Structures are given as structure tokens and as C-alpha cells.
Simulated assay, not measured.
Amino acid sequence: MVKREELLRSIDKNSRISISELAVMLGENEIDVANELKALEDEGIICGYHTMIDWSKTSIDKVMALIEVKVTPQRGIGFDSIAERIYKYPEVTSVYLMSGGFDLMVMLEGKTLKEVASFVTNKLSPLDTVLSCSTHFILQKYKEHGTILTKKYDDTREIFTP
């Protein structure tokens, strides 16, 4: 029987790992690992496979922002309805229900600061249950999904002692 927790942790670290590599790591046969992956997908536990890209190292213009949103939850459905309205916009990459000083955290991306600001002003803020928005632009990513994106400079000079 394939251990789900170990399987999930392994693919969470590297979604490109092959079934044969997983089988060796878990001490299972490939068919059992493949069947367990399929079952996890069918149950909605595995929701997708993603590539992490450091866009700052490409020539593609991309601006990312974190938007703190305060809303008035709707009677009987809470925050789900407004979250759904927000996550349907293609610019929105993530929506989280939060505890603390705001209700929803919305991650979005655009080509320019102006484009992102326009989304907040023209699409997000006017929603009837939105009370306020606070926009934070992401200037530099250092670590994402457990992966360090910046590498320290290695000093390769030889040490000289007189």
C-alpha cells in the first residue's frame, strides 16, 4: 500500500519526478504508485502540476501584486461567493480567506503597475461587497514554494596572507 503522505510530500517538492523514481523512493512498484496518483487526482487532493518560473530572469514583463481585501460576507454563504467572483478574473492567480486585519488575500499579475492598479480600481474595488483594498507590489522574490530563487555570490578569490 503506497503511503499517501510520503507520495504527496515527494511530488510537492518535485512535480516532474517520474513514477519510476517515486516507486524506488517509496519502495513500491510503479503500477501501485501510478494508481495512487490517479486516485489522488480523482479525489481532488492533487489539483494540478505547476512549474515555478523566475520571471525576473526573462525578457517577459510581469508585475505581481498582493491585494488585501476587506469584504462584507453575504448572509448564508459567507465569503465563498465573493471569493468566487474574484478568482474568475484571469488576472487573479490566487485567492485566500485570511484571519486578521483583512478577509481575502488576492494575488494577481499583469504586464505593468498601471495594469494591476487599473484592475484593482476598475474591477475589484467596485464589487458590491468589497469594503476596501490595499495593494502591495511584489518587488523581489527570494523564496517561493520552498525554493530559494536568489543565489548568494560565491567569492572565488584566493585568500592572500602575507
Rank of each mutant, 00 (worst) to 15 (best):
V116K: 10
N29A: 01
S81K: 12
P90F: 00
F160T: 14
V106T: 00
D61V: 02
L127R: 07
N35M: 10
V92Y: 09
I31W: 09
F119Y: 03
L139N: 11
I148W: 01
V130A: 10
K114Q: 14
P73V: 00
S15H: 04
T72W: 09
I46D: 00
V2T: 03
A83M: 13
M1Q: 13
N35P: 00
A34W: 07
N35H: 03
N35I: 00
T161P: 11
Y142D: 01
L8G: 03
G76Y: 06
P162D: 08
V33R: 09
P90N: 01
D42C: 08
N29I: 00
V95H: 07
V130Y: 07
R85T: 02
L104F: 05
V2Y: 04
L8E: 00
I45G: 09
K143S: 03
F160K: 15
S18R: 13
T72N: 14
V71F: 06
L22F: 05
V120M: 10
S56W: 08
S59E: 14
K70Q: 02
T112I: 05
C133R: 01
F137N: 04
E43T: 07
G100H: 08
E21I: 07
V95A: 06
V95G: 03
E158P: 07
K13Q: 10
N35T: 03
L127I: 09
P73A: 00
V95I: 02
D42L: 11
M25V: 03
E68S: 15
A23D: 05
E41K: 14
I138Q: 12
E21V: 02
S15A: 08
I11W: 09
L8Y: 02
V71H: 08
V2L: 00
A34M: 10
E68N: 15
I53A: 02
F137Y: 04
K38M: 01
E36G: 12
I11F: 02
K88C: 08
M25S: 12
D42I: 05
K57I: 01
A34H: 09
E41H: 09
